[in-house]
Amino acid sequence: MTQSQSATARRLFVIAAIFAASILFAIVFSKTRIAIALIDIVWLAIEFSSLSPKVQKVLVIATLIALSVAFAFPFAWLLDTAIKPNAETMKNPPVWIPSEFQFGNFWKAITHGQDAIGYPPFLIYFANTVVLCSLIVSGVVASNAVVAYSFARLKWPGRDIIFSLTLATMMVPFPVLMVPTFALFRNLDWIGTYRPLWVPAWFGSAFSIFLLRQFFSTIPFELSEAAKLDGASEWRIFRDVIIPLSKPALAVVALFAFMGAWNDFLGPLIYILDQKNFTLSLGLQAYQSQNGGTEWNLLMAASSIVIAPVIIMFFFTQRLFIQGIAVTGMK
């Protein structure tokens, strides 16, 4: 106990030292207000547990609100800019409340540039992204579920060695693979198609295999044994026993895959050439012309349309999502 107490003391000392240093820093640079705020934080942190539960709760809520303002602020600014007239987007000092609420910007953002190219680019990018994302997500879910089943519940020679190899591949940074995979897809004549972006998703990925394997191994083996006694094949067990029980885990894998694919920039940047095949993340950059002349309000309106589906999806699935991460025991 004494040892752990001294360890605690040491940790507390480190935290205190950091805060002391920042207070000193703030005072030296005569930022008194920051110093006072920091001192308050330290005081609160020390006294927090001796406060009554009610006060504690109020403090937690206050902190939550303050922090969520800080976190939501740039996002709110994005929405704010989206409904401003363009002249007010970069005024000095910043215009907080637009003189005119231009909700039509969203529609303008969608049809922006239609005349120049002959089609509403945003809708094309959107359709492209939806097609690509659904291919990637379905591929990730299907392939990794099957593979993870094999690693979690079937015994075959070399399985454990290959599994540790699989884990090790998580350390391979994408840049290492960038050049040779480009060369590979070039030799297959796949440059300028979506294939380099979605085909690999159908062959499993280490992260998802790991996640699903952890989950599958928590399902009692008695279930499979019972099914086997009934003469079910591995495929039937996988399909009718494991999959129905694994929905939260599969949802997590799908959501991670979706977010990755929806926001991917580097992949399309390398492989997609024709503007009519752009995805949203690439297309957004096209809103920004190289010498400026960007209509910021439209760019932000387009961005908020891009984010909206993801935010809505997360809001309604977060419980399942967090549970899913918890039960997969990502550790």
Binding site: R186, D189, I191, G192, L273, Q275, Q290
Partner: peptide, 19 residues
């Protein structure tokens, strides 16, 4: 006629991709 952003990089990639 097709409008293309970042043309100096995209064209090299397209040439090396044989399209």
């Amino acid at each position: 006629l097709v409008s293309m952003s970042q043309i100096e990089n995209k064209t090299l990639m397209a040439i090396s991709g044989r399209i």
